[in-house]
């Protein structure tokens, strides 16, 4: 348990550092994402060891779903106050999902073909 808390304190400290960076330099990137980069940098340079944070991070990520539930419940309870036209939103979402799938698929396939031709 103590180990778990210590590991969480490391992650919390990284988050605090990220938030501080974001607000001191007025960066548009959220502090939590800067914190992620800081932790990644720490791991890559060996300042932070994987076993210091791995346990708590893994169980944290496994139960991420729990954290999305309160906002969705809030949305449901508040549905009357939400003024979105669902069909428009659905149209945007499905069209852009198709664009992402095709954009990624075709570009990578094309890239691999070209490379093969150059090498062969």
């Amino acid at each position: 348990m103590l180990r778990f808390i210590m590991q969480f304190v490391i992650i919390l400290a990284t988050l605090a550092a990220g938030n501080a960076l974001s607000s001191v330099f007025h960066l548009p990137i959220p502090g939590s994402i800067l914190g992620m980069f800081l932790l990644l940098l720490g791991l890559l340079t060996g300042v932070v060891k994987l076993r210091w944070v791995e346990g708590v991070a893994n169980s944290h990520l496994r139960h991420m779903t729990l954290l999305f539930i309160p906002p969705v419940v809030g949305l449901l309870l508040n549905w009357g106050a939400v003024h979105i036209q669902l069909w428009k939103v659905l149209l945007v979402l499905s069209l852009s999902s198709l664009c992402i799938l095709l954009g990624t698929g075709y570009s990578v396939e094309l890239y691999e073909k070209r490379k093969r031709r150059r090498n062969g």
Partner: peptide
Amino acid sequence: VKSYEKGSKIFSLLLQTGIVSLAIPIY
């Protein structure tokens, strides 16, 4: 709704530490 949203504020802090934790799979 209001009291539930206020009461569940703590989950948004955990969401932020969750983002920081994403560094582990990326690493």
